[in-house]
């Protein structure tokens, strides 16, 4: 997978968007990761009869094919359900640009190759205005450089955990990495003996 890409943005600018909005709980009775994209933001995207609500950004043809979601602050608050990033990846998003993210969501997203890009308020506002003026403007995301090039030509650096970046760029799998510590884990267990707690 290339970690440098350009994409259009779909705006969803509310703050504190919670995981129950991203993927409502009644769709969590699945035992696989696929098919959740259809249910992404289901209660905002569709009305009671299942018809798309015209005002919702993901239903706006102007934002069709957007691979970046432009969100507000504290995105992904709430539950630890990894179904939230699964739904986004299944839908086709590759990155979320927001003012800030909830912890568990951000971790879950990166584990699924979904970049979480926190921008400063100024940069975020500039991007919001660009997208509002022209839904087809593109941003260029570069994980290696940790930058996102905005439509107005400016380039913003975004923070990412150095280890997660390394894992993504090198395609290293986290469970495989963790299993590399099995000798240390066995030694830790051995040293503690049978005691159940710390």
């Amino acid at each position: 997978m290339s970690w440098s890409f350009t994409a259009t943005c779909a705006p969803l600018l509310r703050d504190d968007v919670d995981t129950d909005q991203i993927i409502p709980a009644r769709f969590l009775t699945t035992t696989t990761k696929t098919g959740l994209g259809e249910k992404l933001f289901a209660d905002w995207r569709y009305d009671g009869s299942g018809a798309p609500r015209p005002g919702f950004p993901l239903n706006d043809p102007a934002h069709g094919g957007a691979q970046v979601l432009l969100a507000g602050a504290n995105f992904g608050a709430g539950s630890s359900r990894e179904h939230a990033p699964w739904a986004r990846v299944d839908y086709g998003f590759r990155a979320i640009v927001a003012r800030s993210f909830a912890d568990i969501f951000a971790g879950n997203a990166l584990k699924n190759g979904l970049l979480v890009i926190a921008l400063t308020d100024e940069a975020h506002e500039a991007l919001r205005q660009s997208v509002e003026r022209d839904p087809q403007v593109r941003v260029q995301v570069d994980l290696e450089a940790q930058t996102v090039a905005l439509p107005d030509g400016s380039k913003e650096r975004f923070p990412i955990d150095g280890f997660m970046k390394h894992m993504l760029l090198e395609g290293i799998d986290e469970l495989g990495y963790l299993r590399g510590f099995l000798p240390e884990i066995a030694a830790f267990e051995g040293a503690r003996g049978a005691a159940p707690a710390g």
Binding site: R81, E82, I104, N108, K111, L175, L182
Partner: peptide, 11 residues
């Protein structure tokens, strides 16, 4: 998250 549930199950 569920990825980590897998990590804990395995390690």
């Amino acid at each position: 998250g569920t990825s980590q549930v897998g990590h804990v199950l395995a390690t």
